[in-house]
């Protein structure tokens, strides 16, 4: 089986679901003839036609809004917002309508829709192309927030997102799009939503992260292992709803927790995990919960983005400090 990268895995999941469920359609800017700016929808228009792989006008608000209308009519739209910073104009539709339609109509209408968007920095893109907005969406009741960290999980999680009866914000780590390849069987098997994945078992510290940072976190874990520190690594993957149980169980075992995310620290999603640990796991902790995050600064343009994104060294230092805490 040939190995594929994360963006190809997204493509494979979309193709699989469009093939097997005629109610699924894709829409977005440049997703048709051009196959998407990252080529996530490459070849889909040829296979499924221009009506189901819809090039929209340059209208992000419309993309979100019409996905709501489509999904209330039992079409399952998978919308692409070209870059994460362009999601913000859609907050009204996501927060006020997509997330609420089921509750507003007490189940009469619902919005089973997916909004896919690249997220995070590290590819030298222009302004507004490198945002990490997961915590903003996690704050919204009624939606799911999913971030894959490998081709395999991108395939399974996207299938799960499309099949889910509720709206899902699916953030694809741009930095991982072409970073590595894996064998991804095209078997239509969806991953479970609402569960954290334990990627590596360990006894000394729990390392919690998601999305692109999983790459640095896994490198850090391997390096730390050579020093005799065995980290348990958890990929949160489904940010909302948060599977706190898996994290609490792990921390009960290790007694220490370092949370790593690229987004700014203030009210970042790490704060939610830390607060939960304080509420429900305080007595299992041997050291303060530590957060390694992006800065509370504007995501810099390309030249400084490396200084912004937490490095492997920074994660290693934080883990050492946490493990050495008396």
């Amino acid at each position: 089986m040939p190995e594929i990268n994360l963006v190809e895995a997204v493509n494979q999941a979309l193709a699989y679901e469009m093939e097997h469920d005629p109610s699924v359609m894709a829409l977005g800017e440049d997703i048709g003839v051009n196959g998407g700016v990252f080529r996530a929808t490459l070849g889909l228009r040829e296979r499924f036609g221009q009506d189901r792989v819809l090039d929209t006008p340059l209208s992000e608000v419309l993309i979100g809004a019409m996905s709501i209308g489509l999904s209330t009519m039992k079409i399952r739209p998978v919308a692409e917002i070209q870059f994460s910073g362009f999601l913000y104009s859609n907050l009204d539709n996501i927060i006020n309508h997509a997330s609420r339609m089921r509750n507003r109509t007490q189940g009469r209408l619902s919005c089973p829709m997916v909004i896919r968007s690249p997220s995070g920095g590290g590819i030298h893109a222009p302004e507004h192309h490198s945002e990490s907005p997961e915590a903003m969406f996690a704050h919204v009741p009624g939606i799911r927030v999913v971030i894959p960290s490998s081709p395999l999980r991108a395939y399974g999680l996207l299938l799960a997102a499309i099949r889910d009866p509720d709206p899902v914000i699916f953030l694809e780590p741009t930095r991982l799009y072409r970073l590595f390849k894996q064998e991804v069987p095209d078997n239509g098997k969806a991953e479970l939503l609402d569960v954290c994945l334990t990627i590596r078992e360990g006894t000394d510290v729990t390392l919690v992260s998601w999305g692109a940072m999983m790459n640095e976190v896994q490198i850090a874990a391997e390096t730390l292992s050579t020093e005799g520190i065995e980290a348990e690594v958890i990929d949160v993957a489904t940010i909302k709803p948060l599977d706190m149980e898996t994290i609490l169980k792990s921390v009960a075992k290790t007694g220490r927790c370092v949370i790593v995310h690229e987004a700014p620290r203030c009210a970042g999603f790490g704060a939610e995990i830390a607060a939960n640990l304080a509420e429900h796991g305080l007595l299992t902790l041997f050291a303060p919960v530590c957060r390694v995050t992006g800065y509370d600064a504007v995501m810099p343009l390309a030249k400084l983005e490396k200084s912004y994104i937490p490095s492997v060294e920074k994660i290693i230092k934080a883990v050492r400090k946490t493990v050495q805490f008396a």
Partner: peptide
């Protein structure tokens, strides 16, 4: 006015 866009989705579904 948000529903002006929802209506586009509804009508697109009907057309589809």
């Amino acid at each position: 006015g948000a529903h002006a866009g929802h209506a586009v989705g509804v009508a697109y579904a009907l057309k589809l």
